[in-house]
Design a protein around this nucleic acid. Structure first.
Length: 566
DNA sequence: AGTCGATGGATCC
DNA sequence: TGGATCCCCTCGAC
């Protein structure tokens, strides 16, 4: 190593670092400024104006004392002060403290998006009920609407039955998919079959009663499976719409798949030409598969002849994604669409053409999903990226504004499958919906993201279900059409929940109900891993559950000791 | 335990 | 309309 010379002329550099903020925060989380700082007093005042040039890559601020430097020999003081990783300002820190997330106070509330408070004190979080923003028009003076509402009223049961909440994990497939789960679908007649699609284009078929019987079809699509629907005339066949631009039709027994439509027959011609299919539904009355793409167009395919019907129709803003399609369960001519142009729209199938929507339901952000209510088809529930669920109580009424807005945390994150509030298809009052929650709560020392059951007629949070082992967010959820079962997709894993009394909880060391699958499975050390030396996990679907033990929340080795800010 | 990266939407110009 | 840039609770790999 070459000897170093010439260091005498260079001023000495001192690096100051904040002391452990955990200790200092025990007193208070006010600006902890080091008293032992020998720098000039002016420096200790954090000035908001100097930002970018003095910031290093770790969100710490480097201050050079230029006045001292001018004097020549005096040391340069580099102070690594802790700054907020969100707003880059000193004096506070955002992030996890243990299992509790501390918001940046400089930003609007992460939950309701209003300024002036954080999620900690947000009324929509503190209250038992999620916040409900009532409709601006309390009553209607429209006679027609009044009559229609009266007609509908007899269908609504006066007394709500008690909700049955599936709140306990009864079995799980861990790392079932090799990428995150993007959609779920229960089999229309076989009660124990769950279909799942993933970001890679694979489709899984899981018999969750037999737990170990599962299959992943890998060659159906080449990228994201956005929606799946069973063929109405043959429940052994399933359609899927994918970002590869195709609709697939797959025989679930054999896995043999054919393409119903391909919007990219010439392969990759650049991003401005690549068409992706998102929203999809089946109009069984007409025998038509409806799909919509990322450029705002709707396509229809006849399921009998497997041929495209007519030309594509622009149903949302040109160039914007249409992420959801839903056919009305009662009135087959009604179609609901939603997308990135911040609208959900109602259409009459008999007069489908650009600009001819019956109604445009405005939202403040992208609309992730829009569904008619499952039984009467007369309500609409939408999930928007502005952290609000919106409900229109009657499609026959005034649709200018929603009947209710419910604040709920389901932010957009590009690494998560978009959240969609889903109806409980069994609820005769059509008021129960399920949706995963983005922000976590500190449950016995673990930061968990529950799955929320919301009474959309009141905004009340009926139940929040979580499991200490599910530390990832569960954006994909589906309630069983007949049984009290909830299926969740969380990252690459699938979970089946049942009501407590009915399920045999997996905590009882019944590891046969936990299946670990996945090609690149590695041994886990520490909290989940035994010291088991199973290298047999590599072949794809080995179902031992050896590596996975359920632990009680709050136990020493509770999962997700998130990033602890020390 | 820390770092990295994939990559969607909003916003600004 | 299009490119650049930013971005708050991800998640899994290395």
């Amino acid at each position: 190593m070459a000897p170093r010379t010439r260091r005498m002329a260079f001023p000495k550099v001192l690096i100051e670092r904040d002391t452990d903020s955990e200790q200092s925060s025990s007193s208070d989380d006010e600006d902890e400024l080091e008293e032992e700082d020998e720098g000039p007093p002016s420096e200790s005042e954090p000035e908001p104006e100097e930002e970018d040039s003095t910031k290093n890559g770790y969100g710490e601020r480097i201050e050079e004392d230029l006045s001292l430097k001018k004097k020549g020999k005096a040391p340069i003081t580099i102070s690594l002060k802790k700054v907020c990783k969100v707003c880059k300002k000193p004096g506070h820190e955002a992030g996890f403290k243990g299992a509790t997330y501390i918001d940046c106070p400089m930003k609007p509330c992460f939950l309701c998006k209003m300024p002036g408070h954080t999620t900690m004190t947000c009324p929509h979080r503190v209250a038992i009920e999620h916040g409900v923003i009532p409709a601006p028009r309390a009553s209607t003076h429209n006679t027609v609407e009044y009559v229609l509402q009266r007609q509908l009223r007899p269908r609504i049961l006066p007394i709500k039955p008690a909700y049955v909440i599936p709140d306990q994990v009864c079995c799980a497939v861990i790392r079932y998919h090799s990428r995150r789960v993007t959609c779920l679908e229960f089999h229309p007649t076989k009660n124990n079959i769950l279909l799942s699609g993933d970001k890679k284009g694979q489709v899984g078929v899981w018999d969750f009663d037999k737990v170990h019987e599962r299959m992943v079809y890998q060659n159906i699509h080449t990228c994201i499976v956005n929606n799946m629907r069973f063929k109405s005339t043959n429940d052994g066949m399933v359609y899927a719409a994918s970002s590869d631009g195709t609709i697939s039709s797959t025989d679930l027994e054999t896995g043999i798949s054919s393409s119903l439509m391909n919007l990219n027959p010439n392969g990759w011609q650049g991003p401005s030409n690549w068409r992706m299919l998102y929203g999809m539904d089946i109009n069984s009355e007409k025998g038509v598969v409806l799909v919509a793409d990322n450029f705002g167009f709707l396509y229809m395919v006849d399921t009998r002849s497997n041929s495209k019907i007519g030309e594509a129709i622009l149903i949302h803003k040109k160039g914007s994604k249409v992420v959801g399609l839903h056919c009305n369960p009662v009135q087959p001519e009604l179609l609901l669409s939603c997308g990135n142009d911040h609208f959900a729209r109602i259409w009459d199938m008999r007069q489908l053409k650009a600009g001819s929507s019956l109604s445009d339901l405005a939202h403040k952000r992208v609309v992730n999903s829009a569904y008619f209510s499952p039984l009467s088809g007369s309500k609409i529930l939408t999930t928007s990226q502005d952290n609000r669920l919106r409900i229109w109580d009657s499609i026959f009424g005034n649709l200018d504004s929603p009947s209710r807005e419910i604040v709920h945390s389901h932010d957009f994150n590009r690494h998560l499958t978009p959240f969609r509030a889903e109806w409980d298809p069994k609820d005769p009052t059509e008021s129960l919906a399920v949706i995963g929650r983005y922000i976590s709560e500190n449950y016995n020392g673990a930061a968990l993201h529950p799955i929320d059951f919301i009474d959309i007629s009141t905004g009340q949070l009926v139940a929040e279900v979580m499991d200490p082992n599910i530390t990832t967010i569960s954006p994909v959820n589906k309630l069983h059409p007949r049984d009290d079962i909830l299926a969740s997709g969380s990252s690459r894993s699938l979970f089946i929940w049942r009501p407590k009394e009915k399920s045999e909880p997996v905590e009882k060391k019944d590891e046969s109900k936990i299946i670990i699958c996945g090609g690149s499975m590695k041994k886990r050390k520490g909290k989940f891993g035994g010291e088991s030396d199973d290298d047999s996990e590599d072949d794809g679907c080995v179902s031992k559950g050896k590596n996975f033990q359920f632990k009680k929340a709050g136990s020493k080795s509770a999962p997700r000791p998130r990033k602890v800010n020390k």
